[in-house]
Simulated assay, not measured.
Amino acid sequence: MVRLLCHLYDIMLAMVMACFMVLGYCLYVFLFPFYRWPFFFRLLYSLALAGLAALLACGVFITHELKKRAIQKPYSESFVTVKKGMGLNQIVAKLDKQDIIQSPLQFKLVAVLKGAPSKLKAGRYKLNNHLSIEDILDAMVRGSVYRNHLVVPEGYMAWQIASMLKRTMEIDSAAFMALVCDSAFARSCGVPAGSLEGYLFPDTYLFDWDASAEQIIKIMLRRFEEKFREQYTETPITRKYSRHRIVTMASIVEAEAAVDGERELIAGVFYNRLARRIPLGADPTVRFAVKKYTEPLTVRDLAMVSPYNTRIYRGLPPGPICNPGARALYAAMHPLETTMLYFVAKRDGSNEHFFSETNDGHVQNKERAKQNKRLQKNRGVQGPY
Rank of each mutant, 00 (worst) to 15 (best):
M1K: 11
V2F: 14
L4Q: 13
H7C: 13
I11R: 07
I11G: 01
L13P: 01
M17H: 02
M17E: 05
A18H: 04
C19F: 15
M21D: 03
L23Q: 08
Y35F: 10
F39D: 09
Y45R: 02
Y45M: 06
Y45W: 10
Y45G: 02
L47I: 11
A48N: 01
G51K: 01
V60D: 02
K68C: 06
R69A: 08
P74D: 13
Y75P: 00
Y75T: 08
S78Y: 02
T81Q: 05
T81A: 07
V82L: 06
K83H: 09
G85C: 01
N89W: 05
I91G: 00
Q102C: 09
S103M: 05
L105Y: 11
L105F: 12
L120H: 00
R124G: 04
R124D: 05
S132D: 11
I133W: 01
A139W: 01
A139V: 01
V141Q: 00
N148L: 07
L150H: 06
V151K: 12
Q160Y: 03
A162L: 05
M164G: 09
R167K: 15
M169F: 04
D172F: 07
D172H: 05
S173G: 03
L179D: 03
L179M: 11
C181K: 14
A184E: 13
A184R: 12
F185M: 03
C189R: 06
V191T: 06
L206Y: 15
D208V: 07
A213V: 07
E214Y: 04
E214F: 02
Q215Y: 09
I217C: 05
I219V: 15
F224H: 14
F224T: 09
K227C: 13
R229L: 15
T235P: 03
T235F: 08
T235G: 04
R245M: 13
R245G: 02
I246N: 02
S251H: 10
A267I: 12
V269E: 09
Y271G: 02
R276P: 01
R287C: 06
F288T: 07
K292T: 08
P296E: 10
L297I: 09
V299M: 10
V305W: 02
S306I: 11
R314H: 13
G315F: 11
P318T: 09
G319W: 04
I321P: 01
N323L: 08
P324I: 13
A328W: 07
Y330P: 02
M333P: 04
H334R: 10
T338G: 08
K346V: 05
N351A: 14
F355K: 11
T358V: 04
T358L: 05
H362R: 06
V363M: 08
V363W: 03
Q382C: 03
P384C: 08
P384L: 13
